[in-house]
């Protein structure tokens, strides 16, 4: 006790700092960091030229384009519906609201492979609503639209659950003030409510995007994985390389993926730090 009072600037009254720090760092290193570092280590053995050759193979480039493009569209769709669902769940009362609220987490609870085979079956020519949609000329399974559908499925909880808590704590005073001062309801929403929700919506968007770019299980059945149609996603290509024991290529692609997800995580962190600063400043 005496030692801590003398030795450190801050007094640590609660016990267990050393112990919890030791356990946390050890487990984090052995289970997460060291395995990921092995990927990095292995890819560093490649010369830059080899590395760029491997990641600029046509089917790899096409897979990156497909994954990023479809994930962007899905994240955008999820932001629109996520905002709407959060609004409906927070601001309105109606029969079955609790069930609706409980269902939002379904994509977290349902294994991705199960979601994958079901969506693929539903949106194929013989399924419902796939049969109907292909009747009006819209093929979903085995196209990019199918990939987007799967990514909307897995991503929807991220946007709803990012926006919902912020909307719940949002003071309706400002809205009332804006309304009394004569702003229309649309104007009130876009000028008063939306700016408050925007950071959380952006967080939800980024989370859904990160999930979408790396998604595997729910996508690989509905996408058809055709190199010719460009419906292979990055995770599928990595898996394919692994099965062919082409480890150099698999690690090179994985490294690019890791960089993308770190950038996204960094962005999410910045958004959240900024938001907490703003909240604390008020």
């Amino acid at each position: 006790m005496k030692k801590t009072l003398k030795g450190s600037r801050k007094v640590r009254v609660i016990p267990g700092f050393g112990l919890t720090m030791g356990i946390t760092v050890t487990m984090l290193s052995t289970l997460i960091i060291i395995p990921l570092a092995s990927v990095l280590l292995y890819s560093l053995r490649l010369s830059p030229k080899e590395f760029f050759e491997l990641i600029s193979e046509p089917n790899v480039v096409s897979a990156f384009a497909t994954s990023i493009f479809c994930a962007l569209i899905a994240a955008f769709i999820n932001s629109v519906f996520g905002l709407m669902l959060a609004w409906v769940l927070v601001r309105y009362d109606f029969f079955g609201k609790r069930i609706l609220d409980g269902l939002i987490e379904l994509p977290f609870a349902l294994p991705t492979a199960v979601a994958g085979i079901t969506l693929s079956k539903m949106y194929s020519n013989t399924g419902f609503p796939g049969g109907f949609l292909s009747g009006i000329g819209l093929d979903v399974s085995y196209t990019h639209i199918g990939i987007v559908v799967a990514l909307v499925f897995v991503g929807i909880p991220f946007t709803v659950r990012s926006v919902q808590p912020v909307l719940e704590t949002l003071d309706s005073q400002y809205e009332e003030a804006a309304y009394i001062l004569g702003a229309s309801r649309r104007r009130t929403f876009f000028k008063v409510v939306f700016p408050e929700l925007f950071p959380s919506l952006l967080t939800g968007f980024s989370l859904a995007l990160a999930r979408g770019i790396g998604e595997y299980g729910s996508v690989i059945y509905i996408s058809g994985n055709s190199a010719k149609n460009g419906t292979q996603v990055v995770s599928y290509v990595i898996m394919q390389k692994l099965e062919r024991l082409d480890y150099s290529s698999a690690t090179a692609i994985a490294l690019v993926m890791l960089i993308i997800s770190f950038v996204l995580m960094f962005a999410i962190n910045i958004i959240q730090i900024r938001r907490s600063r703003r909240v604390n400043a008020v």
Partner: peptide, 26 residues
Amino acid sequence: KNTLSTLIDIPFSISPVIAGLAFIMT
């Protein structure tokens, strides 16, 4: 502290296939 908490969240944002690859490479 912030770095540590970000590192703990890594598995959320990377593709599960890469997790598999990481253990193969280790």
